[in-house]
């Protein structure tokens, strides 16, 4: 019976995850354009991919976006989690306030921040109407700065979830250790830097993996917030892949870019899953 129950899901995952990964990987070694063809061209599509300045921009943006997104959300999320863990009143309300952006779709987030940051009537307009006449905020239309708007919106959306993960970690720390530290006379900041934050190591790992995964997959947010623009200045690998595949009829290049995305994500995820699964039996 266990096998019967499991088999439909296993079949689906085998075909739709691993079969499809194999298919896409194979496709990336063919000269496919508008339709899939199986004329193998070796690493040709990968060469074309890395010769494409749009892809290079996408990778650079990924590094900027991914780095700032992970650092920003981790620091802010941890800070809020520590604040909330101070036996505060109305904890439930605060948690809900920080968590609600996670309920929104990236498209909605993109649309909101497009409005908040629009140069005409948004933040700039509000600051000026409040008396700060010289306030200028036009990141959304500055090719050099537009990528940061995506960071802001992304951090806003994910921080609540990061906070929740850290909060769970904080609540899982043995109180006796903390009491022992206080009996030993450790000042509060030392308790945090020497005991609590090291004890959150597993939570940091989980947070990092989830953030990295979200960053690499980010697609909707860019589409809704900047459409990849101005120009291609906020192009990410995900938007690049989509436009190559579905609008530029470069199936082979699209497949190659998707494969690169998968490999980079897998290099983070697989070690993580391996260590998680090895440790968590015998619970």
């Amino acid at each position: 019976m266990p096998a019967i129950v499991l088999s439909p899901s296993l079949a689906a995952v085998t075909v739709c995850v691993y079969g499809f990964i194999a298919y896409t990987a194979i496709l990336s070694f063919t000269g496919s354009k508008m339709f899939a063809r199986f004329d193998f061209v070796g690493w040709r599509q990968y060469e074309r991919l890395f010769e494409n300045p749009r892809w290079i921009t996408a990778i650079e943006n990924m590094a900027i976006f991914g780095g700032l997104y992970i650092i920003g959300a981790t620091c802010l999320g941890l800070f809020i989690a520590i604040l909330i863990d101070q036996k505060i009143r109305l904890e439930g309300v605060f948690r809900a306030v920080f968590l609600y952006p996670m309920a929104l779709s990236f498209v909605v987030t993109g649309v909101i921040w497009q409005w908040l940051l629009n140069p005409g009537l948004g933040l700039e307009h509000m600051m000026r109407s409040l008396g700060w006449e010289s306030f200028t905020f036009q990141w959304l239309i500055e090719p050099e700065r537009a990528i940061y708007t995506i960071v802001i919106a992304g951090v806003w959306q994910v921080t609540g979830f990061v906070m929740a993960l850290f909060l769970a970690g904080l609540r899982g720390i043995d109180t006796e250790i903390l009491r022992a530290a206080r009996v030993d006379g450790a000042p509060i900041h030392k308790v945090y830097t020497r005991i609590i934050i090291p004890a959150l190591r597993p939570a940091f790992l989980t947070v990092f993996v989830i953030e990295a995964h979200l960053a690499i997959k980010s697609y909707d947010l860019v589409v809704a917030l900047t459409k990849g623009g101005p120009g291609v200045s906020t192009e990410l690998p995900s938007t690049f892949m989509y436009s190559m595949t579905f609008t530029r009829n470069e199936l082979g290049v699209g497949a190659a870019s998707a494969t690169v995305m998968l490999v980079s994500l897998a290099s983070i995820i697989i070690p993580y899953l391996y260590s998680e699964l090895r440790n968590d039996r015998h619970a």
Binding site: L10, C16, V17, A36, A258, L273
Partner: peptide, 23 residues
């Protein structure tokens, strides 16, 4: 097998778009 299913949570869906459209 559980690990293989778990990995499915984390794949970038771009990798399955082309064959899924075909299927």
């Amino acid at each position: 097998i559980f690990g293989l299913i778990l990995f499915g949570c984390f794949i970038p869906f771009q990798i399955v778009l082309i064959p899924m459209a075909g299927l």
